[in-house]
Design a protein around this nucleic acid. Structure first.
Lengths: 336, 336
DNA sequence: TTGAAAGCGGTACCAG
DNA sequence: CTGGTACCGCTTTCAA
């Protein structure tokens, strides 16, 4: 009734050896068909479920990949995970999901745990808080393939699946400029984040191209949530009342910006246009509907998984880089 | 450089036995302080990370709980997981997250995997598709505590953390009636889902109390997404043009309903009021802002984790039930 | 085609 | 306080 059935017990009741049972259950060609059938049938009947811990220990591999993301509540991450699972599960892999809540400590612990359970590969998106990368180096030192997705670091040797951040950002800002905006604020994330830096470069390049002077007072570093977006926007507008557009690192920040603009009785997009990033599912629903940069999140997850599979085949780890294009989705918040 | 360091290698280089290293690393009281220090220091220096698979196999337990949810992209689930982690991680547990995409097969596989890795406890929210429950019985047969959260089944013996579905639903419909609605459509999920049935009972009870005849043509079973909500609503309204309110099982469906109502050029809430369920973060942002039933998702996750901890302490599994109150958040979609 | 036995990497009991 | 050793449950040579 209770405790787990072992292969030995099966062997005993069937009057064969544990080795034979193991072989039968693993479809070894060296077991006679009738015996194999009999063993399998019996195993099924008693609900035998092999102890994967023992199997993994013995075999030295786990048919498991770990996924580490800042938060599963971000649309990009849950979609990317969907893509990863779509590829890995049919190939017989288990996908273990960990979220770090943007924290370094939890990221480090997740990595160490995954190494300690002999994970086959790791797909990760780096936390905002992370500024040391030794834990990722450990993955590579254990000869475990590592694929970074969306949030990467030049300090980590890994395959990368990213979007063209600079170009995406350039196009978003270009759109704002071409619709008549000149005082475009940029609300971004923590300074260290490569993604922030790349997108800022795109922002600067667009300004430059249209001969709009770069004004550091229009730039604000904040964290990834709506409340911070709200505060940052209030602040920016109070100090620079002539701002006519806000470009935000992501849609959560943009939502906060919209709230702040409304609370200051300014009109969107007439007075101030808003463009976000990530194309969250709620973007078309909010008022005004939010312009945003679409990322092919599921496809990116799938590609990360494919890279994992190819790394798993190769003897030597050869990091690869995949860059995806984005799409600016223009909605009411930036278009009159 | 590469392959993992074992306890034997440590023992060899340090000139002690593997047993001693193990004891030192586990802070056993029977090792002299200086030796312990020395071993620990060396282990840290070479980055020794014990093979948790071997540890788990030997110890027979894993300090790990599994969480199985229909989809991590549902706000309720990601919040509940947040709550679970808030309690379990500080207690030294790992939390393994699995999503089933509402599928029976994936749910079953997740359960079997968790059993096969000797999980300490399971917290699960049942898939919409699931109508066989033998996999959950297996959990109990292996003497693993099981806590169901939000989506439960009377066929599964487990602790439960739920909301008062019938009452919540009753109050939502009562609100619609009290604001003058009489033809209230109810768009719900798959028929089998207990949650659907309970909420329908609340719906019926409210109608009854106000002497509004129950009309089965105003009820529509659909799946959990926006597209289905859209179709269902179009259908309902075309067949019953005098509908003056739509009450939906969840906010995704409600969003679809809003889209459909707009596409038919009806006004919300003047012509048709809408109330959803789950209070998704985008509810206040959409246009019109969506009335919805708030569920204390993080608190429910925390409570599920606390139940797990108490079950882990007790010798015998005594299923418990925790019922949480909800809050109807009235917004523009149901209030003139 | 099957069985015996070694061993994956740790832990814990038993000696000393 | 430390070492030797059996063993967790399974897989996989090696021998028969």
């Amino acid at each position: 009734m209770s405790k787990r059935i072992t292969i030995k017990q099966l062997a005993a009741t069937l009057g064969v050896s544990a080795a034979t049972v193991s072989r039968a259950l693993n479809d070894s060609f060296e077991i006679s068909q009738p015996l194999k059938e009999k063993i399998k049938a019996y195993a099924k009947r008693v609900g035998y479920n092999p102890d994967r811990i023992a199997v993994n220990l013995r075999r030295g591999k786990t048919k498991t990949v770990g996924v580490i993301v800042p938060s599963i509540s971000y649309n990009f991450n849950s979609r990317a995970i969907e893509g990863i699972e779509k590829i890995m599960i049919p190939m017989g892999y288990k996908v273990l999901i960990f979220q770090t809540m943007e924290g370094y400590q939890r990221e480090k612990e997740a990595v160490e745990y995954l190494i300690s359970i002999n994970i086959d590969a790791v797909i990760a998106s780096i936390s905002a808080e992370t500024n040391k990368y030794d834990h990722f180096d450990q993955i590579r030192q254990n000869e475990i393939p590592l694929v970074l997705i969306d949030r990467t670091s030049k300090y980590v040797e890994a395959s990368e699946v990213v979007i063209n951040n600079e170009l995406s950002s350039y196009l978003a800002v270009k759109h704002l400029i071409e619709t008549g905006r000149r005082k475009i604020a940029w609300i971004t994330g923590p300074k260290g984040l490569p993604l922030s830096q790349l997108r800022q470069r795109g922002y600067e390049r667009a300004l430059e191209q249209f001969n709009i002077p770069f004004d550091p007072r229009l730039i604000c570093n904040c964290t990834f949530n709506t409340d911070m977006g709200f505060e940052a926007t209030k602040n920016l507008i109070s100090k620079n009342p002539d701002i006519d557009a806000i470009y935000a690192l992501n849609d959560r920040i943009a939502i906060g910006a919209i709230g702040a603009i409304h609370s200051l009785n300014r009109k969107i997009p007439e007075d101030i246009a808003v463009v976000g990033f990530n194309n969250e599912p709620f973007d078309p629903l909010i008022s005004p509907s939010l312009s945003s940069v679409y990322m092919p999140s599921i496809k990116m997850g799938e590609e990360a998984a494919r890279l994992v599979l190819s790394h798993l085949k190769e003897k030597k780890f050869l990091p690869q880089k995949r860059i995806f294009d984005t799409n600016l989705i223009v909605r009411a918040s930036s278009q009159m």
